[in-house]
């Protein structure tokens, strides 16, 4: 793969430029490969090795257990619950997040007065770090002194316990994650909508298509490449970036069934690896997540080749 390709007789000069030996391209690749090796490949290999041990990083103990870490994880009701929660959370944040982003971007791209202001307001949450966003939500949803319950209490005389009712806490974290991701998705959708071919849309309108028809029959198919890209970036961020939000908002709680209702795979990994120092178990979880990401990447290429309309 890394060998320079044999060049066919094309006319373009740069395509004929070829390295004489095999050494030079490797020399050019070396810095990147070194960095990747030190910061990605070696740690990844080390993780895979640790996954076969019962290890504790503080004690420095390591005992070979083969696949026991994996079987324990996959059989543990706690880990299964966490995996299921992660799946539901990812599904909800990605679908609801993209639908609302698309809707808002569509509205904000209409030629209306103050469109720029709307766009600015829609994009600004992107500038907040997840930690700050989490803290803001924590203040808002404090059951006793938070703004949300003050308003709900005054209007309807209800004060929901957002953070320790399992379903509410799960919903709240999901909502916060959707809100946090909204700006990023809107930026991409806005840019794509503004680049939609005006003549095609206009032709549809002249042919008597309604607003909804223009959107679903013309614009939406033309937006599949960006939607496709966003689905995968959103899946990855739901899997990994949910960490800061859960840590600050709920600490993975409340405990229900066999695990915390808002404990997702990456938070469980953090808890086991860096709070409880069960290094081996955490490494096994990391290996499982690696497999998951590999699968998602494979899907991305597979689906991307077959279904996405990239135009001519």
């Amino acid at each position: 793969m890394l060998k320079p390709a044999r060049v066919q007789n094309t006319t373009e000069a740069e395509e004929r430029a070829v390295f004489r030996g095999t050494a030079l391209p490797w020399v050019f690749l070396l810095p990147s490969l070194l960095i990747l090796a030190v910061f990605v490949y070696l740690p990844a290999l080390q993780t895979l090795r640790l996954a076969a041990y019962r290890a504790n990083v503080i004690l420095g103990t390591e005992r070979f257990v083969g696949l026991a870490n994996f079987t324990e994880l996959l059989l543990s009701p706690a880990y299964r619950q966490v995996a299921l929660q992660t799946f539901v959370f990812t599904l909800l944040t990605v679908t609801l997040g993209l639908l609302s982003a698309l809707g808002l971007a569509w509205l904000a791209s209409r030629p209306i007065r103050g469109a720029n202001t709307y766009r600015l307001l829609l994009i600004y949450p992107y500038a907040l770090s997840p930690a700050i966003a989490g803290t803001l939500w924590l203040f808002l949803f404090n059951p006793e002194i938070g703004l949300v319950n003050k308003i709900l209490g005054a209007l309807f005389d209800v004060r929901p316990r957002w953070l320790d009712t399992p379903s509410l806490a799960f919903g709240l974290v999901t909502l916060a994650a959707i809100w946090k991701g909204l700006a990023y998705n809107i930026v991409f959708y806005l840019a794509s909508i503004q680049n939609l071919p005006g003549d095609v849309m206009e032709a549809a309108e002249i042919d008597g298509a309604s607003g909804a028809q223009v959107f679903w029959r013309v614009a939406f198919p033309l937006l599949t490449p960006i939607t496709f890209f966003l689905v995968f970036t959103n899946v990855i961020s739901a899997l990994f970036d949910s960490f800061a939000l859960t840590d600050i908002l709920t600490k993975g709680g409340p405990y229900t069934g066999n695990a915390g209702a808002t404990t997702f795979l990456v938070y469980q990994l953090y808890q086991d690896g860096f709070v409880n120092f069960k290094t081996g178990a955490a490494a096994a979880q990391a290996a499982l997540m690696l497999a998951l990401v590999a699968f998602i990447t494979w899907m991305q290429f597979r689906v991307g080749e077959r279904r996405v309309h990239y135009g001519s």
Binding site: L138, N142, P143, E144, I145, G253, P254
Partner: peptide, 22 residues
């Protein structure tokens, strides 16, 4: 009894008390 609902939420609990809700 009341608390914020989050475990080990020292600051949140202090805030409830200093806001005279407990």
């Amino acid at each position: 009894f009341t608390y914020t609902g989050k475990l080990e939420d020292w600051d949140g609990s202090d805030a409830i008390f200093t806001n005279q809700k407990t």
